[in-house]
């Protein structure tokens, strides 16, 4: 499928004031300020096809928000080129804005003191949504996000979860081709997070809306985004699927065997013992594609296995593994070519 978003060697440099210590330093800074370039985004290349759901992941200060701002037309790249739906977002900001939806988890687009329905009506006028389409979308999205019971209530009386559901529904009211979400589940309780994740997954699946999501909650990505792009210190670390990430970053599946009696020393071909005591034994499995049945078949026939548990490493574990070993890691890992298959 053709790419609708592409970033080619994109970089963004900000000039940051260097503060000097002490009162003399403060005076020197005042008279002759010294600045240093900060590379918020450095040489990033990727492309995203229509209908994809992509998680944009990285620690604080990794350059996630800066990249989202360049894609949505807020900022211009210092180097390289960003195109969204064939346009340069900042040069054609208004046209770009009509075709995208944006949700910033920590900022609201709703009118605080007025009923939710007024914000929706303003959105209709802003995006020039035809009446019939607006009525259809409003009814469908209100139903999917369960907004009907509070749609006439002032926004200031809504809970954070209700507001976020409303924000996301509103961002989709004009049928955007791409939905950008910056930390959409931040601060939500477990139930609200679940509603939001299921909704986004459904929107991506049923409407084919392309989703770009930044988050710190890795479960968001596991449930919504088959593909993830991982950045750190402005640079691209990884671009690919979740299984490829696990493979690239060396996180292993963990197998726990529970025996009926003391098994003594247990050997399992293709697995490395990693702990366990008493009746339990744990192994880290090599990423060689073997199934659980194949692994267990390698156990000695006399083994009295009572229970078996296979633990897939979460993204969190994968990333933690990566950051913990970052000091010793010689080079960044890339698991996928820039252009998706």
């Amino acid at each position: 499928m053709a790419a609708i978003i592409s970033a080619e060697g994109v970089g963004k440099v900000f000039q940051q004031r260097v503060s000097q210590p002490g009162i003399l330093g403060a005076i020197r800074s005042f008279v002759a300020p010294v600045t240093r370039p900060v590379h918020a985004v450095a040489d990033i290349t990727f492309s995203i096809a229509a209908g994809e759901a992509v998680g944009y992941l990285g620690p604080n200060g990794a350059g996630k928000s800066t990249m989202i701002k360049m894609l949505t037309g807020i900022l211009t790249p210092s180097v390289g080129e960003v195109t969204v739906l064939g346009r340069k977002p900042q040069q054609e900001r208004v046209a770009n804005a009509r075709d995208i939806g944006v949700v910033f988890g920590q900022r609201t687009q709703l009118w605080w003191d007025l009923p939710l329905s007024d914000s929706f009506e303003l959105h209709r006028r802003l995006y020039r949504v035809p009446d019939a389409l607006f009525s259809k979308n409003r009814a469908a999205l209100s139903d999917m996000m369960e907004l009907t019971s509070f749609i006439e209530r002032p926004v200031r009386h809504l809970s954070l979860g209700q507001r976020m559901r409303a924000e996301i529904a509103m961002a989709l009211m004009h049928d955007p081709k791409i939905l950008f979400l910056d930390e959409p589940t931040i601060g939500l309780d477990v139930v609200a997070k679940d509603v939001v994740r299921k909704f986004l997954s459904r929107i991506n699946r049923e409407r084919g809306t392309t989703i770009i999501l930044t988050t710190h909650d890795l479960q968001d990505i596991e449930e919504i985004c088959p593909r993830l792009i991982m950045v750190d210190e402005g640079r691209l670390l990884f671009d690919g699927t979740l299984p490829a990430l696990r493979k690239s970053f060396g996180a292993r599946r963990r197998l726990t065997l529970e025996f009926s009696g003391d098994p003594g020393e247990v050997r399992l071909v293709g697995a490395r013992p990693s702990g366990g005591e008493g009746l339990l034994r744990e192994f880290l499995l090599e990423d060689d594609g073997r199934s659980l049945v194949q692994l267990l078949a390698a156990l000695e026939a006399s083994s009295d296995v009572r229970d078996v548990r296979l633990h897939e490493p979460s993204i969190e574990e994968v990333i933690r593994t990566h950051y913990q070993s970052k000091g010793s890691a010689p080079a960044p890992v890339t698991g996928r070519p820039a252009v998706p298959a």
Binding site: T72, I74, A95, A97
Partner: peptide, 13 residues
Amino acid sequence: RGGEFDMLLVRPI
């Protein structure tokens, strides 16, 4: 500084 202006720039106005 609060980022509200960013929100205005993603609207078609």
